[in-house]
Design a protein around this nucleic acid. Sequence first.
DNA 1: TAGCGAACTGCAAACGTTTGCGGTGACGTT
DNA 2: AACGTCACCGCAAACGTTTGCAGTTCGCTA
Lengths: 337, 337
Amino acid sequence: MKSGLVTIKDLARELKISASTVSRALKNHPDISEATKRAVHELAEKLNYQPNAVALSLKQRRSNTIGVIIPEIVHYFFSSVISGIEDVAYDAGFNVIICQSNERYEREVANTKTLLASRVAGVLVSISKETDDFKHLFNLRDNNVPLVFYDRIVPGLQADQVIIDDFDASYRVTRHLIDSGRKQIAHFAGPQKLLIGRNRKDGYIRALNEAGISIDEKLIIEADTFEKARLAAMRLINEKRKFDGIFAVNDLTAIGAMQTLQKRGIKIPDEVAVVGFSDGRFSGITDPTLTSVDQHGYEMGSIATEMLLKRITAKDNDYPFETRILNANLIIRGSSV
Amino acid sequence: MKSGLVTIKDLARELKISASTVSRALKNHPDISEATKRAVHELAEKLNYQPNAVALSLKQRRSNTIGVIIPEIVHYFFSSVISGIEDVAYDAGFNVIICQSNERYEREVANTKTLLASRVAGVLVSISKETDDFKHLFNLRDNNVPLVFYDRIVPGLQADQVIIDDFDASYRVTRHLIDSGRKQIAHFAGPQKLLIGRNRKDGYIRALNEAGISIDEKLIIEADTFEKARLAAMRLINEKRKFDGIFAVNDLTAIGAMQTLQKRGIKIPDEVAVVGFSDGRFSGITDPTLTSVDQHGYEMGSIATEMLLKRITAKDNDYPFETRILNANLIIRGSSV
DNA sequence: TAGCGAACTGCAAACGTTTGCGGTGACGTT
DNA sequence: AACGTCACCGCAAACGTTTGCAGTTCGCTA
């Protein structure tokens, strides 16, 4: 007990039987007599025996650990994803190794090496903003490590993936604004080189088109940060553009816009309605509270993990890749009604 | 290459030399000829050999993994702690297994079992709110697993630990308010049964005492949530209490107070200064921006990990336990100047 | 030309488990 | 007395590494 943990060998020595018998007794193998089983279980209990997961992993040539590559944990969305991953993984008896890429490509490559060295059973990955070379991911696949992408997927790569229906969510956001009587709706868009940015803008455009509202390019501004949103809102006001709604690509952007409007004495939602995206901690504490889109991070994490476990435990994992598209919920709060 | 990863044996077979030679060549052992070394390294490179960390762990009877038990990852503070842990751990060649207790005792116990089974080299732990029985932690210690506590420590248990100096931070917050001319400072306090809540209140009281300002019990209200803070502020106003400053036990509380004040037309910081605690994502996006206390989560994580690694790698870890008390920084923003 | 280092390299055991296969008794059947 | 059957158990190998020790070649000295 002094140094290190008790092993099967320790139990065997103590009971003067072989390690194989102990091993079988522990899993109630029919070959072992009841008496022996009882003795083994009792001693195991007494000595607080914990099977050595490391030895097991080596034997099975695969660890009971799944790897997670995540851009940055310090975001409400990503940390909810991790919670979802953890819960499902632990229920299935798997551990989780988390690697942050910190949005850096180099780091992401290092992460894959680490996970490979740890012989993880599978990997969940959301690529960093920098990543545009996917060799490291192909490397995982070449080594038969099952891969599931969540949220930030790789367009070309065939793999299991779970994503949010950004287009649909944006469409619904815009519809909501239109339905509540808004006619001149601005969009603070995300970077158009990212799929997410394009999808969100497209959903916005589709909703306007369907409602017979013509697109005013002046009302579409690329602004995806708090500061940029403040400036963008300022510009709209200074240029005396008419607008009665703003759909911002994320919550921080929405809040930046709200602040500027309020500073200029514009009433929310009476004069201008504001809607954010990716419902986080912020939406409940603004004044007025912010209408936003719940991205269901927890659900995304748990679903991705289920898909991964399925592939890990499949005897034959040559079945076709699956793409799960999650519906994001529109949460209507004070800023738009 | 097809199934599984390339091993030392594969390299050995390919080069028609023994596994031991390959092993030594890979670590540039002087016994091995330059020619062999070169050949081995080249082949290893070509086949993308990654040492099997699992086998290594088994051999060394200790994995290169450290375990983290954390209450809830979905908090800015805790996720920054994790970032700090990760960075230091990975630089030292250690992996990190993260276990959330979700503030549940049962879960925390399960976590320790998992980590024990994984034969982690050491554990970083911040106990859950429910935990008041520490058998599982003693169990870790009995099995010679080094332990470092961060943030939420166990009062009785002798161990390395790193915590925030809540008392000092609160004292400084209050001093700051006094120094900027405030004389009637309210405190929205945390639960007094938690050490944190008591320390923060005590720091506040000390600063007032030192400044010769008498304590007005009516200005001390237990309110540690957004909603409670709104009600508390409302009450102060309705009861026509005189106050020109509020020190809230956390940022959400501060924001709740600010909203109520603003709704009642009270100017911040002109009429009332507001200060929060545990600087997170919120403080920068309020209007005015919120003065708060940076708890240095990242630093706490990295220091805790350094302490743990020190104990893990120490040949003789019988040296005395260490307690590191971090100074929290007061970040002065618009709400108090 | 035997002997001796030096310079390499391989053998084998060990880490903790699992598992196919082969014992070993006891007992019953011919 | 010989054999078969059962119930139970142990041997040994394997997973991928590391490492103390024991070779095996050399070339060189005496």
